[in-house]
């Protein structure tokens, strides 16, 4: 691609993004340029640096998978420490969260799953309920303690006959957000398919009709408005991962 074509594609891609994300995207594209200036070299070397950082991020994925202890639990906190109001965060502004009709909703299942029959919200709500009060840690640096209730994800995966030897679980969302996690984390006892937040039906801002609560990973690996779950062996990345956030992002 020529430089002109590259810049055209970048602008086209930026135009398809929500404004805050568009700013980030363009800032990152500019970041490459300023980085090249800092190093006193041309953009080719900037691209070399990016490739080296990609390799380091992949290395960090492997280190974190190795460090991950499937039996080590995230700390639970007393109810008095719950943050109210709990912060809102998404790749769009407050108020832009998707509206899902609970009546017509079904959770789709794809990939290496024995029984792919879609689940209604009523069926999901009838699953055994667990509650956790844990700390949600955002990649931006803030954290907040919240109370989430729902079904243990490993229980749900067992019920539908998901292949526990598959490598990835991918979650796709009503707002077109997507992320994927490793199977070891999916089977962790605190990984929860969440339908309630602070004893209320999960509010729209916090991910109605369901989110995946993963207290052993950063907040962006806790997708909201989940509408489909895929189990498979092909790496599927995710929304922020495409921009360069580390895939494993374990805590």
């Amino acid at each position: 691609m020529t430089d002109n074509e590259t810049s055209y594609v970048l602008k086209l891609a930026a135009g398809r993004l929500a404004p805050p994300t568009r700013r980030l995207f363009l800032r990152r594209a500019l970041g490459l340029g300023s980085l090249a200036m800092l190093a006193g070299c041309d953009v080719t070397d900037g691209a070399t640096a990016e490739r080296a950082l990609d390799a380091m991020s992949d290395f960090n994925d492997r280190v974190q998978a190795w460090l991950f202890d499937p039996h080590r639990l995230a700390r639970e906190y007393p109810a008095a420490m719950i943050a109210r109001p709990f912060p809102f965060n998404a790749f769009y502004a407050r108020g832009a969260s998707p509206t899902v009709d609970p009546g017509g909703f079904t959770l789709e299942l794809t990939g290496r799953i024995g029984n792919k029959t879609p689940w209604t919200l009523e069926q999901l709500h009838a699953l055994p309920r667990e509650t956790q009060i844990t700390r949600h840690i955002c990649i931006e640096g803030w954290s907040a303690i919240g109370k989430w209730s729902g079904v243990r994800f490993s229980h749900f995966l067992g019920r539908v006959g998901a292949d526990p030897r598959a490598r990835y679980v991918t979650l796709r969302c009503e707002d077109n957000y997507v992320t994927s996690i490793d199977m070891a984390t999916a089977l962790h006892p605190q990984t929860q398919l969440t339908f309630w937040f602070d004893d209320q039906l999960l509010p729209r801002d916090y991910g109605f009709p369901m989110k995946l609560r993963v207290p052993t990973k950063l907040g962006f690996k806790n997708p909201k408005h989940v509408v489909s779950i895929e189990v498979g062996n092909d790496y599927s990345g995710g929304y922020w991962e495409t921009y360069g956030y580390n895939w494993f992002s374990g805590l």
Partner: peptide
């Protein structure tokens, strides 16, 4: 350095 949060974390 890094240009934005994600770049800086890398």
């Amino acid at each position: 350095i890094g240009g934005w949060l994600g770049g800086a974390i890398r």
